[in-house]
Design a protein around this nucleic acid. Sequence first.
RNA 1: CGGGGUGUGGCUCAGGUGGUAGAGUGCUUGCUUCGGGAGCAAGAGGCCGCGAGUUCGAGUCUCGCCACUCCGACCA
Length: 570
Amino acid sequence: MRVSRLFMATQREVPSDAEIPSHQLMLRAGLMRKVASGIYSFMPVGMKAYRNIENIVREEMDKAGAQELIMPAVLPAEVYMASGRWEKFGPEMFRLLDRGGRQFCLGPTHEEPFTEAVRDTIKSYKQLPVTLYQIQHKYRDEKRPRFGVMRSREFVMKDAYSFDVDEAGLDVSYQTMYKAYCSTFDRLGLDYIIVDADSGAMGGSGSQEFMVKSIVGEDAICYCSACNYAANEEKAQCGVPEVSDDVKNEALLDVEKIYTPNVHTIEELIEFTKSGPEAFVKTILYNIDGKIVAAMVRGDRDINETKLGNLYDATEMTLAAFDDVERITGAKVGFAGPINLKEKIDVIVDNEVSVMKNFIVGACETDYHLKNVNIDRDFEATKVCDIRNAVEGDKCPKCGKPLSMCRGVEVGHIFKLGTKYSSALNCNYLDKDGKENPMVMGCYGIGVGRTMAAVIEQYNDEDGIKWPVNVAPYKASVIPTKINDEEIMGLSEKIYAAICDKNIDVLIDDRNERPGVKFKDADLIGIPVRITVGRRASEDIVEVKYRATGEVKEMTSAEAIQAVLDAVKA
RNA sequence: CGGGGUGUGGCUCAGGUGGUAGAGUGCUUGCUUCGGGAGCAAGAGGCCGCGAGUUCGAGUCUCGCCACUCCGACCA
């Protein structure tokens, strides 16, 4: 491609609404443009990188035996009604009416249409297993789009769905996808970790996320450097901590009521009582599908709403409204406590609290707290279990060593769905005995745009993007330092033509610009190999510079062409 | 959904107390330059987010709306 003809506009200045490196660079390099919040156009250079990622994903899916098809993005409401998700998606689903007033949506994810397609096509166990996929636009009206294509409202996703006769079959399909995902992300050059994720209300038997470690990631990950345990913060298990004999033998003191005027929050309570946050237990009331439930965790811990919600198979869960709190506790918000609460509502107590002694809780009376409260003696729990977020230093549930935490970008997610959708949509097959059974499903997603952003997040420097060769929109750029010098242009054209002949995407920067401008642009858009043709063109000597390492070499034009071939092969 | 911020050439931004719209960058043309975003000169390019209101007069003041954005909550 001739840069003089390339539809591309790079920018010197950092766009004001971009925060993270990948977003800034994608805009500066002119790979994409914002059309509306969370909605982007891809420009030709960005499109090529995008396609490269897509094709790697496609190749690995095909290699794993999955078959590609394409579903519509516009889907009638009925498709999502049978599974209950027409309601469940709520405002996150883009909805529209056709001219006859019929309801449609833009597909946010395609379990239902795939399940229908398989239901109508496959009748016998002999036709199973099957795995299907598509690479297609998805639509989710996110409350808060962020960071460019990291979290956008329209995005391209590779979604695959497997259908098996039983759990054992699903395990095989799932493992096949797991391996395909590893190869995919390996080929993209990503440094990722695989974490256990919550399968939540989906009710499946397992789920893992492929995370690229990054400080800009929106997910918190717990991992163990001693064994290979890694889990999403939502999922990481927190057991009952071991306590020292001192604590075990600690005498239970008498409950004392303390006057704490206008002390509503843990921070204020720490200030007021001069105790550490670990001396308190906070009691938080939730509204879970209309039912009010109390959750108790140590003062400095965060309640894990996923874990709590899973106990109730929750579809909707919010903090309880202020008047609900006041009605149930008989006190203003900020003074909720567990005493006598179990008669009114469920009291779920975190594992950690079950071994604490003589702690402070709200008194269920405005402006009062209680000191020296103890579980069992002073109040009863409906259930003691794990309902808090793991934190740095918690014990690894696998090996007991302390856990570390980091942030990650979720680029892929694999999921054992089980029979949730097949049962709801009657996606059944006949087994050997002529008996009808629901198919056992798995689903597998990769966010293509997000993956692209993650690659840039991992491969960039102050000058721009440093594409891995596999993803690079162009593998090399030939830069004549002067375009009106016949020797320089002649040699540049010769090298350019030779690389084109090898079917390699290459640029020749034939713009009438100073060399510095061309160098800056090549660096910004991240071209892996740069061939500068200048001073020594008459001797057939050019300069080859590698974007990734900054390494510079002088060589003949033939050697330079070979260097590009080697780089692409590697 | 709660709280904050911002809307002015393609991009980044400036425009006390109301008085005909500015810079840098980018773009066009010419001359000089020519290996890391050159210099000089001349140009093109603006419903100052939208709508009301106050005023002789609004980019500027008032009210309403919209969009974008950040923090938080939420996220198959």
